[in-house]
């Protein structure tokens, strides 16, 4: 602002439109809608990431379970069948890595069901062999099962397909639910921004008519007014989005300080690139406000002679 402007209260062209004192509740509503939209967007990204994580965690792997024989020396029988199964697996094309889970790892797997009471110490547990397939390799489970049965009659192959399809179904449900919620909130946000913009313009109808009557072109009036709504919607929605980003970051910090997330669920925090996606929320909201204001002003001006 120029010195002369300061002396006289002269203001920049963009502020011909008054900044309403009563606009604070509308700004608050836009901020809340932006918060909800950013939470929905973040949640849909988390759900999507979780679905991919579950799938990639289980695909490309085969677990062979060797059950203890019912008769004879159980431990020696188990060891012999594990060795035979390992030989079969090593000889199977496409298998990149084979690893027998230790007793401790097996005990940890059953712990959620029977606890640490030591009651299983004397009970022979099945042995688990984790086979990792080479990237891009597919496994003919039936053929492997047939070869294993010949070498180790108590070996059972599990390619996780049943578990994975259920998990995939759950992940898809979560993902599509998140997309649905995101869509609903985006629609509601757009409606609120449009309604508030139109309500504000109704209040300034006389001013629009006066500027028009003084010879202002529709574009000049629209520029002043759309800037007003664009800037206030941008600020309000930025505030809401930043709050959502802080919330996601805060949840991420809980894991760091030792508050564990729920087992099987993905971490509820966002990565940096996912956080960057949240910037789309204020951009879209400000864009809606800008477009609504412009179209409304142009329609008001066109309705005047």
């Amino acid at each position: 602002m120029s010195d002369t402007g300061k002396k006289t209260g002269m203001i920049a062209a963009r502020t011909i439109m008054p900044r309403d004192k009563g606009a604070a509740p509308l700004d608050f509503v836009i901020a809340v809608m932006a918060l909800l939209a950013a939470l929905a967007l973040g949640s849909s990204m988390i759900a999507s990431r979780a679905a991919e994580g579950w799938q990639s965690g289980l695909s490309g792997r085969v677990t062979v379970q060797v059950l203890p024989p019912e008769t004879g020396d159980v431990q020696a029988g188990l060891d012999a069948e594990v060795r035979s199964a390992l030989s079969v697996l090593h000889a199977t094309p496409g298998v990149a890595q084979v690893r027998v889970l230790s007793d401790g790892e097996i005990a940890a797997l059953v712990e959620p069901w029977i606890g640490k009471s030591g009651v299983v110490a004397g009970i022979p547990l099945p042995r688990l062999i984790d086979a990792t397939l080479a990237p891009g390799e597919a496994m003919d489970t039936a053929a492997l099962q047939a070869r294993l049965e010949a070498a180790a009659p108590h070996a059972v192959v599990d390619d996780h397909r049943r578990w994975m399809s259920r998990l995939q179904g759950l992940a898809d449900t979560v993902r599509y639910a998140a997309y649905g919620i995101l869509l609903l909130i985006a629609g509601a946000t757009a409606a609120v921004v449009m309604l508030s913009t139109r309500a504000g313009l109704d209040a300034h109808h006389d001013m629009v008519a006066l500027l028009h009557q003084m010879g202002a072109r529709a574009g000049f009036i629209a520029r002043n007014i759309e800037w007003h709504y664009f800037s206030s919607a941008l600020l309000a929605s930025l505030a809401g989005t930043v709050a959502a980003a802080l919330l996601f970051t805060g949840i991420g910090s809980l894991a760091i300080v030792g508050v564990d997330a729920v087992p099987f669920l993905p971490p509820l925090s966002l990565t940096l690139s996912e956080l960057a996606w949240l910037a789309a929320v204020p951009a879209v909201i400000a864009g809606i406000a800008w477009t609504t204001a412009r179209l409304s002003v142009l329609s008001v001006v066109r309705a005047i002679y």
Partner: peptide, 28 residues
């Protein structure tokens, strides 16, 4: 043809000049 209530007397008077695209330094 009312005055714009949120603008000062100076800014109200200057409005036609601003609409004509003149700079403040030229009409101050």
């Amino acid at each position: 043809f009312p005055l714009l209530s949120h603008l000062s007397a100076y800014d109200n008077v200057a409005l036609p000049l601003r609409l004509a695209g003149k700079r403040e330094a030229d009409y101050h």
